[in-house]
């Protein structure tokens, strides 16, 4: 699914990722944990193609060079990122946005575009499953949404677009327990032998709800340690400081 080899990235001549390696197979869930400033969000941004980074190294996604693709083509090919801070876009209707986005992706995948009625049925089911208030669909995209509502909207977009590789960038930050449950239920309902997840988080608590296959500890731009689910618990106890010393 995803193979990252010796990935380096800098912004404004400051090196953040320093030779990062990671391989994700279809169906796997990987968690990346690390202290602030270790490069977690940079990794997510580089994978989705945000401008402004000088990138070296190789990233193969489904066997193809990901770094060469424009942002939207990555998305159309099934790469989805749930943003840490979803943007508020005034004037753009949420429903209209979701529909345009879904139909663009469907077109690329060779599927028929959905008409308004089909789309409405789809979105009604999805919002109900995720216990999201339908009213947000008629509001402007993320404008005036609470932190929880924004994150739920990200998960809603994820379930609608049915991506192949999902990156959750600190999706748990600022969530209460109920919202966290809804978010993780959304993620778990998409678990599939063909779909992979990359969960980026600072805290272990999200991993109580979404069980990862692997946990990686990111320190100073590269992976310091890799383990299974228990590693996260261990980290919670000893903290990153220790890990940094070891790494």
């Amino acid at each position: 699914m995803l193979q990252i080899t010796n990935l380096s990235a800098s912004i404004d001549n400051k090196k953040i990722l320093k030779g990062f390696n990671l391989k994700i197979k279809p169906g796997e869930i990987h968690a990346i944990m690390g202290p602030n400033g270790s490069g977690k969000s940079t990794l997510a941004n580089v994978l989705t193609g945000k401008n402004g980074y000088q990138v070296e190294g190789q990233v193969l996604y489904q066997g193809k060079n990901l770094l060469k693709l424009p942002i939207e083509e990555r998305a159309q090919k099934g790469l989805f990122m749930a943003f840490q801070y979803p943007l508020e876009i005034a004037g753009v209707n949420t429903n209209n946005f979701l529909k345009t986005s879904l139909n663009t992706v469907r077109k690329v995948r060779g599927l028929k575009e959905l008409d308004s009625l089909d789309f409405l049925n789809l979105i009604k089911t999805k919002t109900k499953n995720l216990k999201i208030d339908e009213k947000i669909l008629n509001r402007q995209l993320n404008v005036g949404f609470s932190g929880g509502e924004k994150k739920k909207n990200e998960i809603l977009q994820m379930t609608i677009l049915e991506p192949k590789l999902v990156i959750l960038d600190e999706t748990d930050s600022g969530l209460d327990i109920d919202a966290m449950k809804i978010v993780s239920e959304g993620v778990n309902s998409l678990r599939d032998k063909d779909r992979s997840f990359l969960i980026i988080t600072h805290y272990q608590r999200l991993l109580d709800y979404i069980k990862p296959d692997f946990v990686h500890v990111l320190v100073d731009g590269k992976i310091a340690k890799t383990g299974c689910g228990e590693l996260a618990l261990e980290l919670e106890k000893i903290g990153y400081g220790k890990m940094e010393a070891e790494g």
């Binding site: 939207e72 159309q76 943007l87 345009t100 992706v105 690329v108």
Partner: peptide
């Protein structure tokens, strides 16, 4: 806002 463009493009929309 370039951030908004990025957000929309990361959902598959062309520029």
């Amino acid at each position: 806002d370039q951030g908004s463009i990025f957000y929309l493009m990361s959902r598959g929309l062309s520029k």
